[in-house]
Design a protein around this nucleic acid. Structure first.
Lengths: 198, 198
DNA sequence: TTCATTTTATGACTTTAATCATAAAACAGC
DNA sequence: GCTGTTTTATGATTAAAGTCATAAAATGAA
């Protein structure tokens, strides 16, 4: 996260996106640095027959879509508002100037990219070799650490739909539903009127 | 890549690893920055029943294992020499000092992490939603751009074993062998005495 | 040059998640 | 409050990759 005041000093502008509105599209060249003020944004791909894979979900104070910005490459995925969201947009050149003039920010960017690479490494290993129960549990446990799940009397409330869990783990909804039930039976999580807790 | 002279100025030492020797292990805390002088290194995970997933393969002048270094987290995978290899090791604190005193290097690190994140994004989407032919082809095409495949009269020589392709895509050897044959039949690649070309 | 190991290969079969069909409950918009 | 959509749910069936067995070719080490 970069302080909003600093971003604004370099010319960042606030933009609002409605729920399900596209922020940028796969295949386009990056033009801005994006940082969320409020709401949530997902980055995802659609394969040939319309099946979705969610690369990640981002919340307030988080940035997204930087890698292609540094590489002059096309976006490998779409960014879509999951809820009504407000986002700060800083044009690429201003962003690079900001980095140059504020070396401490570079370390923040590095740490952020390192964190995301870490998540992708863990999930890639899970998704390639582990069975559904393992995959779902790993996603949930990662989510507790890095997504904004709230803890209450029942434990952490995993506020993802079964479909979202499927799209994040590469499983189908039905499989996720069955897997979650199996995990509950094993006592690894709780289902309280359809909500999942851990 | 950071210039070897600069690394040595900050106290980096050269270390040799035999083929199949472990450089560092999953679960350990990072102590050094690693940059390859010669040979090749893979980062990989083994799941509960011994199945391997290769996170990536790295060659001369490339660094590996940085993310946990920036996050003070444990390594999410093992680093193993694929061939006899020489690696420059720079202790963590010296590396951070180097970064601090050479701001231009930070941008290099950022670009490198961005590149790896880009690869992982593309492969994650493939691995979760696409059929084997698509997955193998994507890996090969990515490899042409970023691994050191050599081009000759037959095209790019994909010098991965079927097993390695399987470990990189989450498929079993037999499936890779059959998939490659199917891709050859479709004219998407060539097999010339067991070697794969594209 | 020989021998052990790795890599590629192929067929038969099995398992597991995907698919398909259907429906109830919950939620959101009007 | 009604209605359309989304989410959760369950059972039956299918397809596709995994598994198992076996072997030839290639490679590398002694």
């Amino acid at each position: 996260m970069i302080a909003p005041e600093l971003l604004e000093k370099y010319g960042a502008l606030k933009k609002s996106f409605d729920k399900n509105e596209i922020i940028f599209e796969e295949g386009n060249l990056p033009t801005h640095y994006y940082q969320i003020i409020s709401g949530q944004v997902k980055m995802s791909n659609y394969n040939d027959d319309g099946r979705e894979f969610i690369q990640g979900i981002f919340y307030k104070e988080q940035s997204f879509g930087e890698p292609p910005l540094f590489l002059n490459q096309k976006y490998p995925a779409n960014a879509i508002a999951v809820d009504d969201s407000e986002v700060l947009l800083l044009p690429k050149n201003n962003f690079l100037k900001l980095l140059e003039e504020n070396p401490a920010i570079s370390l923040k960017i590095i740490e952020n990219l390192a964190q995301r690479l870490y998540y992708k490494s863990v999930m890639a290993a899970e998704m390639s070799t582990q069975e559904p129960e393992h995959r779902v549990l790993k996603l949930i446990d990662h989510g507790i650490a890095y997504f904004n799940f709230k803890k209450d009397a029942n434990g952490y409330h995993i506020n993802f739909t079964r479909q979202q869990i499927g799209d994040l783990t590469g499983l189908r909804v039905e499989t996720v539903i069955r897997t979650i039930k199996a995990l509950e039976k094993k006592g690894l999580l709780k289902i309280i009127n359809r909500k999942v807790y851990r």
